[in-house]
């Protein structure tokens, strides 16, 4: 077990270095930050001076060494556009993104799993067919379109929910939460559903496929033969066995939801990290872009590591196989 985790950790470090290198190279092509920072009338001498002070004239390898060293120590530098430490900017926006991503994943599971079980069990039912068709829409409609449709329906036409922002937030020791106010809850509904829709359909289809598979296995037949109630068979025996792949997928999807909340955050003006990143791109704010990329890579690496360990813990066969493999 220890060896397994240690191996994973070494791999993770390589992944991080690799992402760092890619991020760094990418930024050589995104444009000139100096042009974005100065005004139109700024003289050439002042531009050159700023370029020198930002270290943009140093050799690439020196710039990369400085970049990697700073990243490793958690020093993401100063945002060119906001003129504030990037780590501080990210810390301010992290709660908004985490709450949105967390609620979306919970929504996806709470709706996706029951629907998956239902459609798996009642494969030929009319309701199942309707749900499956609707889920196709969920998978294929782009997020920004769903978001804008929601805004027009629920904000402009019906006037029920706000079209933008996070509502009132309460600050709990540096973590701002919208879960303690009514306006906060109202504000999170539309973006959370928008963001959850894709994951919801994914979970549903996954659970359904697994259910179909599991229901055909011998142990379900034996369980039935033992006279165990239908309900117990379906939920205790079958569902439990479908969950191993679901855990893996959800783990990876959590990373995706955090990383790709960008579009949802932009449509709903949700003050999270994704918007920070997008603004960073527009303004060629290299410190923000690189910090975001490296941080998201870090999330993925950590989540993957946890999923690997969970997998190892949840599925006893894996442990047996490994032991057996040593022969």
């Amino acid at each position: 077990m220890f060896k397994f985790i240690a191996g994973r950790l070494v791999q993770s470090i390589f992944v991080m270095l690799f992402v760092g290198a890619i991020a760094f190279t990418l930024f050589q092509f995104v444009g000139d930050p100096v042009e974005q920072m100065v005004g139109q009338d700024t003289t050439q001498a002042e531009r050159d001076e700023l370029r020198e002070r930002l270290g943009l004239n140093d050799p690439l390898i020196v710039q990369f060494a400085r970049f990697a060293g700073n990243m490793a120590t958690g020093d993401f530098g100063f945002s060119y556009q906001h003129k504030r430490p990037v780590s501080q900017l990210i810390a301010e926006r992290l709660p908004a993104t985490m709450e949105l991503a967390g609620l979306s994943i919970i929504l996806a599971l709470m709706v996706g799993i029951p629907l998956g079980v239902y459609t798996g069990l009642h494969r030929y039912g009319v309701a199942s067919k309707v749900i499956m068709t609707l889920s196709l829409i969920g998978v294929s409609l782009p997020t920004f379109l769903i978001g804008i449709l929601f805004i027009y329906l629920f904000s402009v036409i019906l006037g029920w929910l706000p079209s933008f922002g996070r509502g009132e937030v309460v600050n709990l020791g540096g973590w701002t939460t919208g879960f303690l106010t009514l306006s906060g809850w109202k504000a999170i509904i539309l973006p959370a559903i928008t963001l959850a829709l894709f994951q919801m359909t994914l979970v549903m289809r996954l659970v359904r496929a697994e259910m179909l598979e599991v229901m055909r296995t011998d142990y379900i037949k034996f369980a039935r033969a033992r006279g165990i109630s239908n309900r117990a068979v379906q939920f205790r025996h079958a569902l439990k066995n479908t969950l191993v792949p679901v855990i893996t997928i959800i783990g990876l999807q959590l990373g995706t939801v955090i990383a790709f909340a960008i579009i949802t955050e932009t449509v709903f003006q949700w003050p999270g990290m994704g918007r920070l990143f997008l603004q960073g791109i527009r303004a060629v704010d290299i410190p923000i872009m690189s910090a975001y990329l490296v941080m998201i890579a870090f999330f993925f690496v950590i989540i993957n590591l946890i999923v690997d360990i969970l997998y190892y813990v949840v599925d006893p066969r894996l442990r047996v196989d490994r032991a057996g493999g040593a022969n």
């Binding site: 804008i148 805004i151 079209s163 932009t266 709903f268 003006q269």
Partner: peptide
Amino acid sequence: TPIQQAATRVAA
């Protein structure tokens, strides 16, 4: 309040 997306700004 900043609202980046033009469509959301119009909706608001």
